[in-house]
Structure formats: C-alpha cells, structure tokens
Design a binder for these strands. Structure first.
Lengths: 271, 271
DNA sequence: CGTGGCCTTGAAGAATCTCAAATAATGTGG
DNA sequence: CCACATTATTTGAGATTCTTCAAGGCCACG
C-alpha cells in the first residue's frame, strides 16, 4: 500500500548551505576549546535553540548535543521528507520553511494531522513501532536538521535533563493532538478556523514574526483537511470572518483586525 | 477554572483493598528472597503483564519494576481518578474496570478523548508540563496501579530497555490520537461508529474476551462525545447497523453479526 | 410504584457538503 | 513575451447529513 523507504535520503553535509562551498573554512578551527563560531548546525549557536530540541538544556548537555553534529537536509516545496510506513530513523527539526504531516486513508483520502514551523520537531510518531505512522512533506522550500533517533536515545540515557526534555517533547505532542481532537470533536466551522488562526498567530509571534499579519503556506484544501471540513467551507468561513470585520483576507495573505473577536469565537463564553 | 489538586488522593496501601484492614498481614513477609506469592501488585506476577507497562521487559528490568511496589487505588463508578489541571505525579495502569479521559471546554462542554481498559496506561499527557491536560474518571468500579512518574523516570535512566518501553508507550499514545483525528476529521457517522466498535472489539479480544459480543461501559452521550457526534446520532446509527444486519443491539449489550461488513464500512474500499 | 436516568424515534431545522461555474494566479511551451 | 493549460480560490444553489427539540418507553432504584 504505502511506499516503504523508497525516498532518496539526501543528507546535506555540515557546511552552510546558503554560502559558497569554500565557506567551510569557517569550520576549520572547530577543535578549539569552546568552538565559538564553529558549525552552523550546532544547537548551542542556533537561533532556534529556545524553541527547538535544546530548549531548557544547560551547558553540559548542550555541548553533548552539539557533538552529535546533526546532518541537514533540504526539501523542496511539495517534496516528502518521509512517507507513512517508512522506517523510522531520524527525528527532524524544522530549520526553515513549513511542513505538513498527513495520514492516508485506504481510499486515497488524505488527513492532514499537523503543520510544522521553525524549531518544531517532526517524526516522533515513529518511536512507537519503528515506522512512521504519518508522512511529512514541505509546503515551501525548507530545511531540517536530521537527528538520528538512536543518538538522541544514547544521550537521554546518560543525562537526566536530556531524558526529561525528550519525554516532554513527546508528551507535548500528545497534548497538542488532544486539543486538535477537541476542536474536531466539538466545534463548528467558525470555531475551528478561529482556533487555527489563533494558533498560527501565537506560533508566529513566538518566532518573532507579526502575529497579526502573515502569509498562509497551506492551501484551503490542506486547512480543510486539518480542520475536518471541505475547502469550500474554509473559503466561506474566511469570507464570513472578513464580513464580520475580524480579518482581511487576500488569498493566502491574512491580516487579523480583531484578535479579541476571534478569541471570542474560539472560546464561546458562558454557554 | 479547573479545580487544581483538590481531589482527595486516596492511595490504597499494598494490602488487597477488598479485604478488611487487618488483612495487611498478607504483606508481612514481603522481605523474603524471591517473593513468590508476595504482593499482588508485582508486575512480574500480574496477569496483565503482556499488555501493560512491563510488556517486552526481561528479567533484570522486570525485577526492578517489581521493586517499585506500586500502590493501588480503587475508584468507584463515576468517580474521578484525576482532574484536568491537577498536578501530575502518577501514571496509572488500569487493573480492572474502564475509564474515560476527557477535556473540558470553558463553556462546560465535555470532550471525551479516550476510553481505557485493563493494562492500558493513563496520564502520560501530564509529562508535558507537570499538570494533567485531561481528566480521567471511572465508568464502572475500577482499580488502578498508581505508578510514581519520578520512580519510573529513575528506572528509565538506568535501563535502556525501560527507556525504550517508556518512549514507545508515549509514541503509541500519539499514534492512537492520530487515528482518532483521522476518524474525527474525515469520516461520517457510520464510519466513526464502525471504527469505534472494531477498535473495542480488538482490544477486548486482546484481553481474552469475546470480540463479537460485549457490554458497553459508556453511555451513548460518551460515545458521541468521543466520536464527535450527538447522542441521538449515535443511537440512530446503532439502529441503522441493526437494520443492516451488522449488529444486534440491546441497550449496551452489543453482538457483532457481520464483522466484515463493519470493516467495509470503516474502510470504504476504492472510493 | 413513582422518579430519574438512559435510550429510541420522529420531525423540523441548521450546518455542511456537493456540484457547478466564474475568476484569478501561475507556470509552460512556443 | 504571449497564448494556453493548470491550479487555487470564491461564490451560488440544491442535496445531504447531522443536530435540535420533543415525546415516549424502558429500567433500575429507593
């Protein structure tokens, strides 16, 4: 049914990928004591470190994380990072771009189970039985750190902090899905879309972007799949929000005009 | 909003709780070498060991699990095991009875996020931030092992196997929620109820009960909440299945007449 | 034996989906 | 650089599914 491990895994080396090849001279003195400006893939140097895997880790552990030297991988818009059913080897951290994970029904229907942005981890559903339960693909040109799960496990074994961080990350995933279930199970179209937008807004804000004006990386169909409604309903609900003066919508460009209003829709007070 | 840690935690000591207080004499010789018939709470002796936490663990680890001497706790039908928001201290394993976990919306709506039966673990959503994201209560008189999470963590730290088991359990929870999301996001009433019944059937079978004839422990309203539909719709769908010759329904007593038929409804072939 | 909780069923209404068409945006090949 | 094919989005109208409201039955329990 599902394609198994047929994806060419193109692991990019540690050199900065934006820079020219000879920029690797940057990393020449990487054996120096504290490796100040060493490899751009080092967690301790990463601009995402407070959002990503190393969040909360202190020096001893952080350094050991750095020693793992995660490979990086670029994924073009529309390409898969991994497929459902594929063997689970890596956990991926988004460096740039946006991803969606999705499950496939037998009849071809697709159910989007999440959108992922910078600093977020993907692939933890593979821990259960060694194979990815869902697939993951890029919504725009993107880049990830490929973190070998086995190495991560070794680290967790030897460090209490690291173990804690890993457990929390998995549990957070459970909680995240909880709230999506609640949304899917007991909310109407407006509540769902409001919840979706508020969630996006928060995450963008946490990454230093404007929480009130942003560009959607996913199509109406993908939003619909995620929220359990048809793309036409998504579109109509966007229009409704616009007419209510809550949003300005121009295709995928969104400007939130009334954050409180959206919040009220998402969390209907009283009864 | 939510009640915080106001629940009287009644941890039953290791004595069998059905017995009278002085039955604690049962545990008097618990310091004996191999403790053959010692405490009924020992994982290595438990009839649920292949379904529950110790599943897959070998001797060295199993013994260390035994040494933790989990407390047990009885919960009467309708009583809460823990509430949403309460401080997270224990992971619970179902010994007997059935539980539901649920989230509460601000406006009082309840969303059931899972049903749990013998051998299943509950409470792992609390790992994320130290507080339970959802509450859990008994659908019938029930009993659980209360496993102090801190102890479990200690164990995982020192044993690779144990760490693996813990990670898998959490990931399994993620995968479980994935499939519920798919169900909520892209299936109609009949597909949802069929999926629910097939899932129950499987789990009962794994526990040695008949997969074709069983008693539902949850109300129509609870099923509906779990599946994202109203109780009347649940009832009507049961009736529809009965008219289609798929089931025999008598209140909460269910007999599956056509398992393949149910499966076809759940997984619509082609399109 | 009356009461309350749970379940079933009907009928009307509302929300969402389906089908269809028009428009805009984008990329392709000539 | 343009014509054309393709895709994404919006909007309308009718069909469908599910919900809401209401009534009645069954059963357990005091």
């Amino acid at each position: 049914m599902t394609e198994l491990a047929t994806v060419p895994v193109r692991l990019v080396s540690r050199a900065t990928s934006a820079a020219t090849p000879h920029s690797s001279s940057l990393t020449a003195d990487s054996s120096v004591a504290s490796r100040p400006t060493a490899l751009p893939t080092l967690c301790s140097n990463c601009h995402l470190k407070d959002l990503c895997l190393p969040c909360g880790l202190e020096e001893p552990d952080l350094e050991r994380l750095d020693e793992l030297r995660f490979g990086r991988r670029r994924v073009k818009a529309g390409e898969a990072l991994y497929h459902a059913g594929e063997r689970f080897q890596f956990v991926y951290a988004v460096r740039a771009g946006t991803f969606k994970s999705s499950l496939n029904l037998i009849d071809g229907r697709e159910q989007v189970s999440g959108f992922h942005m910078a600093g977020e981890l993907m692939g933890l559903d593979g821990v259960a039985n060694g194979h990815h339960a869902s697939g993951c693909s890029a919504l725009e040109d993107a880049e990830v750190c490929a973190i070998p799960y086995a190495h991560l496990n070794d680290l967790a074994r030897s460090s209490n902090e690291m173990q804690l961080v890993m457990s929390r990350l998995m549990s957070r995933e459970i909680v995240r899905e909880h709230s999506l279930m609640m949304l899917l199970g007991s909310m109407n179209a407006e509540e769902r879309l409001a919840g979706f937008l508020l969630n996006l807004s928060q995450r963008l804000k946490a990454r230093g972007y404007s929480p009130l004006e942003f560009h959607l990386r996913m199509s109406r169909a993908e939003i619909g799949s995620y929220l359990g409604m048809k793309l036409e309903t998504v579109s109509r609900t966007f229009s409704a929000f616009q007419h209510q003066g809550l949003l300005e919508v121009d295709k995928r460009h969104i400007r939130i005009l009334d954050l409180d209003g959206l919040t009220r829709i998402f969390q209907p007070q009283s009864h």
